[in-house]
């Protein structure tokens, strides 16, 4: 028996002490698997695992487990995202069993954006359980071999459990504690919200390290490269819980016409370089939204290649 919880590549990489690198892939708004496969090819070999989003921003897309299976076929390891908005505990557990049986080994447990933001704002939400309870449910399924109701599972799913943390959400003073709560509930690794305000993140991480949380789970710092000034402005004003400092917007603007995207990538690479040295940060989660084709270049320039192979 291995001493891995799930034996996923991501778990192995993190456990080996290698600075991890995860990517992200949004499933198509349709059954167009060619689009998905193309995205997958860009990410292949560049990342240790790929987050597959679950109807992100409450917009209907191919289900995250189905898209995850396509990624496995393409030779990538998925990090299967699941939100509490669309499923009750029955559906969640049955999806987890099916996902595991098909070879999915990582999961990211999230509350989910409210349906108001999406393309079916008139829908009814579920929120039978919250993200904390989802984390704990998956842990009990794995470690105790029990369903949420206490009943035994015939072959429990061995999942490497991920959770999110937003260092910039309010109330700020509670965020490290909420992270601690997620770790206690069963999170093995954390992927943070996209970071732009490095000062605030440094302070957050200092508190996390002082609390010893980095020793209890792996923390991956979230990065989303800015493609344009418009995107930066949108993130700053329209995305709740996002902190984009004015200085960054100024820097992007200063890059001049046609050079903003490159400046955005430069900033992302600087961030990665700093995270590599930052105490408590075990890796980077790169959310290059609809920019998967730029991931190989970012990975290369940030010195993240080649990715390790651990048996």
């Amino acid at each position: 028996m291995s001493d891995y919880k799930s034996g996923s590549n991501l778990e192995k990489v993190l456990k080996s002490g290698t600075f991890a690198f995860t990517g992200e892939c949004g499933p198509p708004q349709g059954a167009n698997i060619d689009v998905l496969k193309k995205k997958a090819q860009h990410l292949k070999g560049c990342v240790d695992a790929v987050n597959v989003t679950d109807n992100q921003t409450a917009v209907v897309r191919m289900s995250s487990w189905a898209a995850s299976l396509f990624l496995i076929q393409e030779g990538l390891e998925p990090n299967y995202q699941m939100v509490c908005r669309d499923r009750n505990r029955l559906a969640m557990q049955s999806d987890i069993l099916g996902a595991y049986a098909h070879g999915i080994r990582n999961m990211l447990c999230l509350s989910g954006d409210h349906q108001k933001f999406g393309n079916h704002p008139g829908s009814k939400n579920v929120f039978d359980i919250d993200s904390m309870q989802l984390i704990n449910m998956v842990k009990n399924m794995r470690d105790e071999g029990k369903f949420q109701n206490g009943q035994e599972i015939d072959v429990p799913p061995k999942i490497f459990i991920g959770a999110a943390s937003n260092p910039f959400g309010d109330p700020t003073e509670f965020r490290p504690y909420r992270l601690a709560k997620k770790i206690n509930a069963g999170a093995d690794f954390i992927q943070t919200q996209s970071i732009y305000n490095m000062d605030r993140f440094r302070k957050f991480m200092k508190q996390v390290v002082d609390m010893g949380l980095h020793e209890k789970c792996y923390i991956l710092a979230g990065i989303t490269p800015m493609k344009s000034v418009g995107m930066a402005r949108y993130m700053a004003s329209q995305v709740p819980g996002m902190d984009v400092p004015e200085s960054l917007i100024k820097r992007l603007k200063g890059a001049g016409k046609g050079k903003v995207a490159e400046e955005g990538i430069k900033f992302a690479i600087e961030q990665i370089e700093e995270f590599k040295e930052m105490e408590g940060v075990a890796g980077v989660h790169l959310m290059a939204i609809e920019w998967e084709h730029r991931v190989p270049e970012i990975a290369e320039r940030a010195g993240m290649l080649p990715r390790p192979k651990i048996d």
Partner: peptide, 12 residues
């Protein structure tokens, strides 16, 4: 979201 273990990341 009727969270029992909040707040979510969207609190601002």
């Amino acid at each position: 979201k009727s969270l029992m273990n909040g707040p979510c990341g969207g609190s601002a």
